[in-house]
Design a protein around this nucleic acid. Sequence first.
DNA 1: CCGGGTTTTCAGGTTAACCTTATCTTACAA
DNA 2: TTGTAAGATAAGGTTAACCTGAAAACCCGG
Lengths: 224, 224
Amino acid sequence: MKHDSFNESAEMYLKTVSELAVNEGPVPISALAGRLGVSTVSATEMVHRLQDHGLVEHQPYKGICLTECGYRQASEVIRSHRLWERFLADDLGLAWDEVHSLACRLEHATDPKVTEALDAYLGYPATCPHGNPIPRHHSTPSEPEDCPLTELRPGDSAVITRVHPESDELLEYLADLELVTGTYVSLFEVVPFNGPLVFKERERTVYLGLEAAALVFCKPVEEA
Amino acid sequence: MKHDSFNESAEMYLKTVSELAVNEGPVPISALAGRLGVSTVSATEMVHRLQDHGLVEHQPYKGICLTECGYRQASEVIRSHRLWERFLADDLGLAWDEVHSLACRLEHATDPKVTEALDAYLGYPATCPHGNPIPRHHSTPSEPEDCPLTELRPGDSAVITRVHPESDELLEYLADLELVTGTYVSLFEVVPFNGPLVFKERERTVYLGLEAAALVFCKPVEEA
DNA sequence: CCGGGTTTTCAGGTTAACCTTATCTTACAA
DNA sequence: TTGTAAGATAAGGTTAACCTGAAAACCCGG
Ligand SMILES: [Mn+2]
Ligand SMILES: [Mn+2]
Ligand SMILES: [Mn+2]
Ligand SMILES: [Mn+2]
């Protein structure tokens, strides 16, 4: 049973499966391939390799699930990723929408010893700068109680809590719109026929497409 | 002219050439291969690839030198390596003899932006925890004015300043003997026929083989 | 119950890094 | 000067990740 710390590629597959699996149920290989930017054939090959190593289970025409062991490895990578994001943003002062891709390289080069020490150094933060929880051993990952922006009704107000799943383009786009975690927004209207959500916020009007809004989570705020 | 930040393997070759080149003159491929733990044939292949990219120049039967461009890339990797070492040791509290190999993975996953920010965060330290200078743009790397332990004479006293080149086994060994940077030593005798150096230090007698001693540098201290 | 679209598999190909074994070349020391 | 060890090249092989193009298997809505 060699469970060697795996290489970058395999780690990205595991991490991605874990991220896509939050919407419950097995992840189709095509979704994996899409997110990783490889062909479905390549993804299939890799998934089979991972299956041979007991990290993943593939039910043809259904999708893939992480095994216990695969889940542990994915969590370790995600943990390291989010801790690095915190460090890069909070301590090194790098930009909110840059730290994701910077951490995505570091996460594969990080020994567990470093992860542990970093966690302590940062004071055991609860979330990454984009609001996603930092996995810890012994702690069951409690489901966050926020909802996507798309569930708001016109007139509702909310604070942005989380972006998931994270991607460079999305984070960059949100940063441009100044819709980062902690931002207070109130929904003005939803343009019909799958149009964007329109937010009004002190003098400012922001249009956010449905696709993006579905990935941004918030916690409603009582009206004053 | 694609000068893409290179992959781990190429970076290690460049870094190693740079390290072995301090003893002036072109580095034989066999030395490279030895340090990197690959066959000379593999090293030759890689050196040719690097030459095609204009990073290295190979004069058959003489050795290889870095080009201007190769030197710059090597320095960038070394810079990142030594800054990470400082962070891991000083801030995260990891052990003196562990940080080298931990940093050897991080160094290839570090964007220049991160390196710069890290340098500032650490307050622009001059050296890594093992005494080697941290390269900076604009600063010509001044030759350190220390000498190897092997140049001491019995009766001499000195402070350990530097270990070069660094390797896991050597650092671990030195840590065991408590011969780390900053340690005060005085040479008692040199055992003939290439025998070890014998140091006496408050109640403690330490034997250090010639091969190791040649890689440990010190600054002599005036006798009181 | 069947056909079209999704999903998977098959076949064949590429590239970077490695490897071994074997055959040159060259430098230099006796 | 010449023999030999060190260094370089040649030849052939492996593995992980990728790719394309095409065939086969499946699932589900009409
Ligand atoms: Mn990554
Ligand atoms: Mn994040
Ligand atoms: Mn390295
Ligand atoms: Mn060091």
